[in-house]
Design a protein around this nucleic acid. Structure first.
Lengths: 336, 336
DNA sequence: AACGATTTACAAATCGTTTGCAAATCGAGC
DNA sequence: GCTCGATTTGCAAACGATTTGTAAATCGTT
């Protein structure tokens, strides 16, 4: 059975389609009597305007895209959920795209979203070449980067002060008396991780502590890889008394490596994560970590996205939020 | 700058739009010479056909909807990721909708997806009234339920034998010598949970063990609620030696309640979960749980969805998969 | 009753595709 | 060179909405 169209409603209500359209959108004047009649018919026929057709006439599609590395990663699935709630409350739907941080996927998905005429794209994954974003900007497709740096790109962005976050972690460890400290990082191409490590090292440097390069390991962002990398750190000849991990996944890997090696956390080894995902509350010991105010960030980013749909060529904003240290159980003063 | 349309390509290539369309879709015959010319122009102009316009002509939108209770819940975010990968590999995008198990949301989101002319909907959340599904079936909008029962509904479904899963958990606990057993369940309106509990109790019944009603608690599906509910069980006068939780979230709540009450898991209390999410590998002790073969299930469901788009009014299938017990560290023989 | 001033309703054009059918082109056979 | 199928191409009508300009209906005044 075909869906009912505006023609069916018009015929049934004895008016023209223009009048039905006006009644629905509250545009031109429609007498109360006809309007009531039209709504009654719409109700009876279960009429629902086709978003497709009205999008073709240049109206919005009420759909936005969300680009993230991986929805099944708790950090991003929490973002996705917040985006979704915000979006739905304003009548939008969201198409989720997991890029696995692969550049070609980023590009492919952006093209796809463009073809589908989304009203905007929220990007929470790294973007290599600014070209594609410039093209979209020219087509005035709103884009907002979230939790990722976007230097020299024609887009709004809202992110955390990752450098500061790294420093926060360093200060906490320093305060606990740690001197032998290692770092577990995601691939340095991920700017947020790079900044975190930079901030971390800077704070240590200021305190007169050096981190030798062998104690900084970078690997893929997964529990498994974190575990493997942490294992070599732990088995190494001068085992660190603390490990700073660029995200919670890596920190959990480290926790597992420690457990397997029989070293107790936090008594023999302190571990600190980043992101404050649900995972960090679930481990035992619970993970000390650095939190980003994600809900606020997402809200800001979403508003920016929707607003910039109306108000294009406005100056691109770069909003940076402050991270916060969340002390739980995985860190302490070193035993020695 | 406006996007390039099929007209631009046609004019530039010196042919009609019909020919361009044919060249793209490989429909009517187009001479090699013109086809090459057309593709060259498309390349040069960066032409991308508008999905909107072609959808209006009755073609597919290459978009599907995914209805789940909550993307930020690891069980569902893992499903979402699998769906997404499958979808993208076939050129589809997926709109994710979190329903929080609220009936009105389910209905609202389905209507929304319908308006947007998605090619199909994958439902992983409970649906109260079959009416709405019947309507969609009449409009021949393909629907597949996943991990949820759909009795008397005109849709395909692929799910786990939850009854069996519950029994598996019971047998494991029984094998460990437990006799004093409690159950932590999600709201019984969630059919999968209901079945799990039913299967669990049945297996105990067959072994001659009874679970008194006070030892079966149902609450919202979250760590916090699980913790609260488990706490009363643990503090109760005759503390169980084992708790069967209908999903991993509740099990983690139980784990936390135990930790807080100072009872050791699994020495003093065994806890078993359900779903085998990433969370169950992260806790300490790692969670014994019942796994559903989600990847397979999602693949099956997706294929059913896409295939039933072509082949409508085919008989509705109900595929049921077998659950598997995953023994980790949170269960053991009771201490007494 | 007739007038202009307002409302209200409508017909037609438009958005960017697909598609059935007619027109044009082509190659081959005589 | 002409005719006849076969093959390519293009025209024009959808698809389901929005929007604009204009005609018709309504209203209040005199």
């Amino acid at each position: 059975m075909k869906a009912t169209t505006i023609y069916d409603v018009a015929k049934e209500a004895g008016v023209s389609i223009a009048t039905v359209s006006n009644a629905i959108n509250g545009k031109g004047k429609v007498s109360k009597k006809k309007r009531d009649e039209i709504f009654k018919v719409m109700e009876r026929l279960q009429y629902q305007p086709s978003v497709i057709a009205s999008a073709l006439m240049g109206k919005k599609t009420y759909t936005i895209g969300l680009l993230i590395p991986d929805v099944s990663n708790p950090f991003f699935s929490e973002i996705a959920r917040t985006v979704e709630d915000l979006a739905h409350s304003e009548g939008y739907s969201v198409i989720v795209c997991s890029t696995d941080n692969k550049d070609d996927r980023v590009e492919k998905y952006i093209r796809l979203l463009e073809q589908k005429s989304v009203d905007g794209i929220l990007i929470g994954t790294g973007v290599e070449n600014a070209d594609i974003l410039t093209q979209l900007a020219e087509k005035s497709l709103p884009i907002v980067m979230i939790a990722r740096e976007a230097v020299a790109m024609p887009v709004h962005s809202v992110l955390t002060d990752d450098f500061k976050g790294g420093a926060l972690a360093a200060e906490h460890l320093l305060g606990g008396g740690h001197r032998q400290i290692a770092v577990l990082s995601e691939n340095f191409k991920v700017t947020s991780s790079y900044e975190r490590v930079r901030g971390f090292r800077f704070a240590l440097f200021e305190a007169g502590i050096a981190v030798d390069d062998e104690s900084i390991i970078s690997c893929d962002s997964s529990i498994k890889d974190g575990k493997r990398a942490a294992a070599v750190l732990i088995r190494g000849e001068n085992r660190p008394s603390a490990i700073f991990c660029c995200n919670d996944l890596l920190a959990i890997g480290a926790l597992q490596a420690a457990k397997e090696a029989g070293v107790r956390v936090p008594e023999q080894l302190s571990i600190i994560g980043f992101d404050d995902t649900i995972l960090s509350t679930v481990t035992n010991p619970a993970l000390t970590t650095v939190a980003q105010p994600m809900d606020q960030m997402v809200k800001l980013a979403f508003d920016l996205l929707i607003r910039s749909a109306e108000n294009t060529d406005e100056i691109k904003q770069r909003i940076v939020m402050q991270p916060e240290l969340i002390v739980r159980e995985s860190t302490s003063t070193p035993a020695n």
